[in-house]
């Protein structure tokens, strides 16, 4: 694979990424640049199609919808899944363990889970998106609407008419 341009190479040094792979710069909405391997960046279908379309690989990709904290966490996921092999049983188990710990941390911080979910959706990172939406679904399972509101910090805004309809729909009240 061709080595990247001067800017990317310099950034690569800064990030101490392994050589031999093209490096790609992702920029958060706060203007902070993150340099990742192409394999890591390709976890995102959005970036993958831009790279494949011969987009501005050298200039990097600005991501106006993602803040630095969220992008750093998303990249952590992409690095793990993009740069590591998953051929053997052990390798797959290690990735599954990573996913489990990764989502457990987000589960404990629902505001951050929201940001990571939105970023995974925007960047079309299939695995991460599945992981976060599953986490949201698991949070909802078995809870009453009130418990769900508490879990996500959602304000009650239903009208009396909504409540009437809900009473009709509820099978377990």
């Amino acid at each position: 694979m061709a080595t990247g341009s001067g800017a990317a190479a310099a950034a690569a040094d800064a990030e101490e990424k392994e050589s031999g792979s093209r490096m790609i710069t992702l920029t958060s909405n706060e203007g902070k640049a993150f340099v990742v391997t192409e394999a890591s960046a390709r976890q995102s279908a959005t970036i993958r199609s831009m790279v494949d379309d011969g987009g501005c690989v050298d200039k990097g990709f600005p991501l106006p919808n993602v803040d630095s904290k969220t992008l750093a966490r998303v990249i952590q996921y992409c690095d793990e899944h993009g740069n590591k092999e998953a051929h053997t049983v052990d390798e797959r188990a290690a990735l599954a363990k990573f996913d489990k710990d990764f989502i457990a941390e987000l589960d404990a911080d629902k505001a951050f889970l929201y940001d990571v979910t939105m970023a995974a959706n925007y960047l079309h990172i299939q695995g991460l998106f599945a992981l976060t939406t599953q986490c949201i679904a698991d949070t909802i399972k078995g809870k009453t609407p009130e418990e769900i509101r508490t879990a996500f910090g959602i304000e009650y805004d239903l009208t009396a008419q909504d409540e009437e309809e809900i009473k009709e729909e509820d099978t377990h009240a």
């Binding site: 909802i140 609407p145 769900i148 959602i154 304000e155 805004d157 239903l158 809900i166 729909e169 509820d170």
Partner: peptide
């Protein structure tokens, strides 16, 4: 669970 999700907020 689907019914309860629909009863969370507008």
């Amino acid at each position: 669970d689907r019914v309860r999700l629909r009863a969370v907020c507008r």
